[in-house]
């Protein structure tokens, strides 16, 4: 289940790029799920441990991935921690939903992310409500961001 806390949350890791730089493991990058996310969001191909082929930047290290993908990889690999998901653009939303379907995660959002038109299950921690569409989510989350 995907749990979201909207608004400021002191226990959330705010600067996910710095955290990622200091904790990521090579296996997180070469994992097939990460490869799919990196290809979809960053349009980049994971060549091997620590090397990613970016169409714009050339051969890059994992720390040079986009802020959004780095946060997605953290959510997937450290589900016990709470990350600031406002470092993710709307093009990361479907991956956040997928990670939430695979495992229980809690994220902190400080803006209204667009989770798309399909139905979903999101538990909003602020009000302890489960919402299933953006139409249900916006009036609840909008109060807090």
């Amino acid at each position: 289940m995907l749990n979201i806390y909207y608004g400021r949350m002191s226990e959330a890791i705010f600067n996910t790029a710095v955290y990622f730089k200091n904790v990521y493991e090579d296996s997180w990058i070469t994992d097939s799920f990460s490869k799919e996310m990196i290809l979809d969001v960053d349009k980049s191909i994971v060549l091997g441990n620590g090397v990613i082929d970016s169409p714009v930047l050339g051969k890059i290290a994992p720390v040079s991935l986009s802020g959004g993908v780095k946060t997605l990889i953290l959510m997937k690999n450290e589900p016990q921690k709470i990350f600031n998901a406002s470092t993710c653009g709307n093009n990361c939303a479907k991956w956040i939903l997928k990670i939430g379907e695979m495992q229980d995660i809690t994220i902190n959002l400080r803006h209204l992310m667009d989770f798309g038109r399909s139905s979903f299950d999101i538990h909003i921690l602020n009000t302890d409500q489960v919402v299933h569409s953006m139409k249900e989510l916006v009036p609840v989350a909008g109060i807090f961001v």
Binding site: D42, V56, S66, G67, N90, N91
Partner: peptide, 11 residues
């Protein structure tokens, strides 16, 4: 500046 991830903001 806002927008999708991987558009080059941090770059």
């Amino acid at each position: 500046i806002q927008g999708d991830s991987a558009t080059g903001k941090t770059t």
